[in-house]
Computed example of a mutant assay.
Amino acid sequence: MTEQRTIQADPAPQVHGLRPVETAARLTGWALLLAGLGHALRAVWEIRLWTAGEPASGPPDQGDGVHRPLNSLESSYHLVTSLVGVTMVICAVFFISWMWRVRDNSVALSRERPKYAGFWVYLGWVLPVANLWIPRGMIADAYRKSVPGRMLPSVVTVWWVLWLVGMACGTGLFYRDGTDKLIERAYSAVWPLLFSEAAMAAAAVTGFLMVRAVTTAQLDRIASLTADRRIEG
């Protein structure tokens, strides 16, 4: 009596410690584009404020804690600014989640300690001075450890420069203006605001390309290692 056996191929050997990153990258990319759209929309409203001109009653913030009632255009600018804030929060949540994953995967692929400790994934964005280079540095380190010997894509640096320019010249890094103060600036000197919105929108688009480039390189390395181990097995 002949014994029949079903022979199943062993699954391809896997790199231990890897985390799924493709979906996180896709969500992060769309969140970045959504945030960029928000900045473009706010730029439209700032142009509308500038062309309408400041009302005879003066700016919304009249000093000494006195605020006059907003007109309809100013109220709608408040709404648009709130929407921009929501898109930025969504983008931050997805982006940080993606950063964690590519960082952890780079450790799994290289078996080397990362250049920056894990708490910098959060603290690197908010700590003054350090936030000028650490987020980009973490992504660059993850890329280099994932695909050693390959040159860092220029889009990583372009994205970071645009982000810093947008934050510095408009509303974030050096300006802590409330929305009423932004309205006042739109009436009197709109060009720095528009330059900031353009830089932030461009940073969102290049950020989308950066996330795709880093993720694709990491996925290609994972696929290559998996194929090599299958052959060795």
Rank of each mutant, 00 (worst) to 15 (best):
T81Q: 11
L37A: 14
E112S: 11
T87R: 00
L79H: 11
L41D: 01
G17Q: 06
M151H: 15
M167V: 03
I222R: 08
W50L: 10
E197S: 13
R103S: 05
L162F: 05
Y116A: 06
V161F: 08
R229I: 08
T157K: 08
P192T: 00
Y187T: 03
I139H: 00
L152I: 08
P135V: 06
A201Q: 01
A52F: 10
L219I: 15
P153C: 00
L194E: 04
L32Q: 09
V44S: 08
M210D: 03
L209E: 08
D220S: 10
T6R: 14
D228P: 09
L173D: 01
L173W: 08
G118M: 09
Y175E: 14
I47W: 11
A203N: 01
E3V: 15
R101V: 01
I222G: 01
E184V: 07
M99P: 07
G178K: 05
F208I: 00
E22W: 10
A130R: 09
A9G: 12
V165T: 07
A203G: 03
L152N: 00
R42K: 14
L83Q: 03
G85Q: 00
A9Y: 11
E3N: 12
A12F: 04
V107Q: 08
L34T: 12
G65W: 07
M1L: 12
L123A: 13
V211W: 00
C169T: 13
G207V: 04
L37H: 05
R42A: 12
E112L: 15
I7R: 10
T215K: 06
L162A: 04
R48F: 10
C91G: 07
C91Q: 08
A92V: 01
V129P: 08
S188F: 10
Q14Y: 09
V84H: 01
T206Q: 01
A227S: 14
L219D: 09
L27G: 02
V121S: 07
R144F: 02
A186W: 01
A43W: 03
V155D: 02
T23S: 13
L33A: 02
A35V: 06
T23P: 04
G207A: 05
G58F: 05
S224R: 15
R5P: 08
I134G: 06
V211C: 04
T87E: 00
I183C: 01
F119H: 14
I231Q: 14
R26K: 12
R48E: 11
T2E: 12
G38Y: 04
G233H: 10
R111V: 09
G166I: 01
L79W: 15
K145Q: 13
Q8S: 12
E232Y: 11
T206H: 06
L182H: 13
T87V: 00
L209I: 09
E232C: 10
Q218D: 08
H16P: 13
L37K: 00
I139R: 04
D10H: 14
Y77R: 02
A198W: 02
R101F: 02
F119P: 10
G38V: 03
T6H: 11
A142G: 02
L219N: 12
T2P: 15
S154K: 15
W120D: 05
G124H: 05
M138D: 02
G172T: 14
A223S: 13
R185C: 05
V156S: 07
L225G: 02
V205F: 12
R5L: 15
S82R: 14
A56C: 09
I139M: 08
Y77G: 04
M138S: 06
S154P: 13
Y143D: 00
E46M: 15
